[in-house]
Simulated scan of single mutants.
Amino acid sequence: MNEDRAKGKAKDAIGSAKEMVGKATGDKETERSGKADQVDGKVQNGAGKAKDAFHGDK
């Protein structure tokens, strides 16, 4: 697993937590920010998977 995949998974997890906090507190901005972080994390993780596939890693 390369660095992009690890960072992407971390962003996704942090985004999920931010979204839950935003929902719990009624803070729509935090909720939206969390959703955006999740998308960024998924994209970064996908880029890392592509790099791994190109280099023959799993």
Rank of each mutant, 00 (worst) to 15 (best):
G34H: 07
S33M: 06
S33C: 02
E29A: 13
A47Y: 10
G34S: 02
V43D: 11
G8V: 07
D37N: 13
F54Q: 11
K9C: 11
V39R: 13
G48A: 01
E29I: 01
G22I: 06
A53N: 03
K28G: 07
E3A: 03
K35P: 06
K28D: 15
D57Q: 11
A24R: 05
E31K: 02
S33V: 13
K18H: 12
D40H: 08
A17N: 13
V43C: 01
A36D: 14
D27I: 02
V43F: 04
K58I: 00
S16H: 13
A50G: 03
D4H: 00
G8E: 07
K35I: 09
D40N: 05
K28F: 14
A6M: 03
Q44W: 04
G22Q: 01
K28I: 07
H55A: 11
T25K: 09
T30E: 15
D57A: 05
H55R: 10
G34I: 06
G41N: 05
R5G: 09
K7H: 02
I14P: 09
H55N: 10
F54C: 04
A24F: 11
K28Q: 14
N2P: 00
I14A: 12
T25E: 03
K11F: 07
A36W: 07
G15I: 05
A13D: 10
K9A: 14
M20H: 08
A10E: 12
E31H: 08
A13W: 04
S33A: 15
A17F: 05
K49Y: 05
V39C: 03
Q44G: 05
A6P: 00
K58E: 09
K35H: 14
D40S: 04
K18M: 14
G34N: 01
I14C: 13
K58N: 10
G8K: 06
N45P: 00
V21T: 12
A53G: 05
V39W: 05
T30L: 12
